[in-house]
């Protein structure tokens, strides 16, 4: 089968507020193959989390998919009823969230919550213990009896991962899974996600604002800005030679190890809000390369497995070559 595991095409999600329709995600497309690790990066307001949530059919009531399609293994998710969607969650698609404390019920034991997650996927106690062992708990039976407050943030996120993966889903959605954690715990959790995804052949869609998280974990990256995917491609290539000025600016603005710069490049201004979006390139007000041409809809330039939406790729490339010399 050549159909990808998840294929989002031209997705538009809108907030409907007193008859006015305001898009939050505006024509996002991406696809995930089996076992592939894909990252969605962007700032808050870029629509990255909303894109991720809509793949799970878990949009808040104020948001609706207003256009485009989300196909999971060839079947259209936007057309599925709530009940059928619910049945997909767990055994087929699972999700982990940013805040592991609020995502767990404080009154129930870890065991009870894992059993609930496993029940839907028809996994038994043996699978649960095995999964807890895999996510790195030394004494799984003891963890089963504990409650969320007895665990540290990193342990809770491991429990969340165990809950998500106990049913052996084919797709794991992760919304900023390590943002709330300390640096050393962050890389532990990411490594765990990487290993499990590799061993269980689970595809991962990770949403993050942190480029180093993307670099560590993902094979493919989609950079979102103001509701659109402005650049996508293999992580290594995109982060080495970006084809969109926004990606370039993100890379330049983050301090890195051994930074000897006295000042950081910074992107002036802030992300435009949906009511300011128009046909033209949405990054143009903050872009160092912007010209009048950018007021027109930017072309989608595709080359091998990379794509980006920009009028001035040639000038960007020229700049990169200049800087490299």
């Amino acid at each position: 089968m050549s159909e990808p595991l998840l294929k989002i095409q031209n997705l538009q999600v809108s907030a409907t507020r007193s008859s006015a329709k305001l898009p939050v995600v505006d024509g996002a497309s991406l696809s995930i193959e089996r076992g592939e690790r894909v990252a969605l990066v962007g700032e808050s307001g870029s629509g990255k989390s909303v894109t991720c949530f809509s793949a799970m059919g878990l949009l808040p009531e104020s948001l609706q998919v207003t256009d485009g399609s989300i196909r999971y293994q060839g079947s259209e998710l936007t057309a599925l009823g709530a009940e059928k969607l619910r049945r997909l969650r767990g055994p087929e698609i699972a999700m982990i969230y940013q805040e592991p404390l609020t995502s767990l019920n404080p009154l129930l034991t870890i065991g009870a919550q894992l059993k609930e997650a496993a029940g839907r996927a028809k996994a038994g106690r043996r699978e649960i213990l095995e999964m807890l062992d895999r996510v790195g708990f030394a004494d799984p039976p003891r963890i089963l009896r504990q409650r969320p407050h007895e665990l540290s943030g990193g342990m809770r996120q491991r429990v969340m991962i165990a809950m998500a993966l106990v049913g052996r889903p084919k797709l794991l959605l992760a919304d900023e899974p390590t943002t709330a954690l300390d640096v050393t715990i962050q890389s532990q959790v990411l490594k765990l996600m990487y290993d499990l995804s590799y061993d269980l052949d689970t595809a991962v869609l990770i949403v993050s604002h942190d480029l180093s998280v993307v670099r560590k974990l993902a094979d493919t990256v989609h950079v979102m800005y103001a509701g659109q995917v402005v650049e996508s491609g293999p992580v290594k290539e995109v982060l080495a030679t970006p084809r969109h000025p926004y990606t370039q600016a993100l890379l330049d603005s983050a301090p890195h190890m051994g930074d000897t710069r006295d000042r950081l490049e910074s992107i002036p201004g802030i992300v435009p809000t949906p009511d300011q979006w128009d046909q033209g390139c949405r990054f143009r007000s903050r872009c160092p390369l912007a010209t009048e041409q950018c007021e027109q809809r930017p072309p989608k330039v595709e080359e091998d497995d990379r794509a980006s939406m920009c009028w001035h790729i040639d000038r960007l490339v020229a700049r990169q070559q200049e800087a490299a010399v």
Partner: peptide, 15 residues
């Protein structure tokens, strides 16, 4: 991060 809330809060400042 809750996109919808951060978004609506962010715009006004620039104008």
């Amino acid at each position: 991060m809750a996109e919808s809330t951060t978004m609506s809060a962010s715009g006004t400042g620039s104008v």
